[in-house]
Write a protein that binds this DNA or RNA. Sequence first.
DNA 1: GTCTATAGGCAGATAGAC
DNA 2: GTCTATCTGCCTATAGAC
Lengths: 186, 186
Amino acid sequence: MSKRTDKRARLIEAADKLFHEQGVNITTLANIASLADVPLGNVYYYFKSKESIILAVIEQRRKLIQQQFASWDVLDNNKGRLRSFIEHFVTTSPQTASYGDALGSLCQELSKQTGEIALAASTLLKEVLNWCETQFKALGKGEKSETLALNLVSSLQGISLLTLTFKDPKYLEKQSQTLIQWLETV
Amino acid sequence: MSKRTDKRARLIEAADKLFHEQGVNITTLANIASLADVPLGNVYYYFKSKESIILAVIEQRRKLIQQQFASWDVLDNNKGRLRSFIEHFVTTSPQTASYGDALGSLCQELSKQTGEIALAASTLLKEVLNWCETQFKALGKGEKSETLALNLVSSLQGISLLTLTFKDPKYLEKQSQTLIQWLETV
DNA sequence: GTCTATAGGCAGATAGAC
DNA sequence: GTCTATCTGCCTATAGAC
């Protein structure tokens, strides 16, 4: 791996972490450069603007999401895939209590901006919805699959906001149990 | 009404609008002063800092929420109160598609900050949860009331995020219908 | 009470030596 | 490819005339 790739990757990783923990708008290029241990002026060799870093972070998140889905897609059990999706929210519930859901926070913040960035963020959430819909279809839910996917994703996003607001992972843990039970009844 | 009250109220109203439409962090005191038609330097006669404006906006939102609840509390029909709450989200769905839910956006953004402000925002959402729980108790749901309130509020907040992300009020409209049906079954 | 002018600091972005 | 120094502009906040 070349140095170019290495530093670039470190900057994206640092930006992703800070965007999640502090928010995109508050995070400065100096913050990112400092965390990535890259001199501020050097950032502009890898990214032409803050906006292009944001886009790179979105694409990084896309890869991460696709990897998670790929790791669950190998499961034989149809409902097990959706259970894994829900349980993943429990795994990250402490971070969610401190900083919110990474994807939800990003969409919330970027959707108020105009242009390319808001669109890019929305396609991320769309991929999540599509994957869930695919799982429900594999369960034979047919036309209902879209609605079920919408219910699942919005429920997890909503409880993530409450978990952040009240700074308590219990909200997410409890709602996940409810959703796993719900999964058996639909 | 004194001039003091008038200008102060205009500043709070302008800040509330801009915080919702752009986000708290992006909004500058110059933006607020301009929209309220108050000279920038004069803002500091009414508020000692940006933080104190944010707190004033939160308290303004609290009054608004309490007024809405009071207007629904006069309804005789127990379920009708909760239906009014849900239908209110439909009424504001176009704004939600553009700027997100006002309360949810505020909590999302402020919860990542430390200190007094995050706490103040969380008590707003808590009041909403408490009101819903009270309504479910009036319906005789007893111990289940807290869980039901949590389901209702998180579902509305989650779908508000999707509505914003995909810039389409339909998400909120559809989910509201689902929730009103759900209300009959619980 | 009101408003202009501006201080002081920090943001994004660039120039140019190495 | 790398990094220091810095430009330019905007932000919060203040000073002080009226």
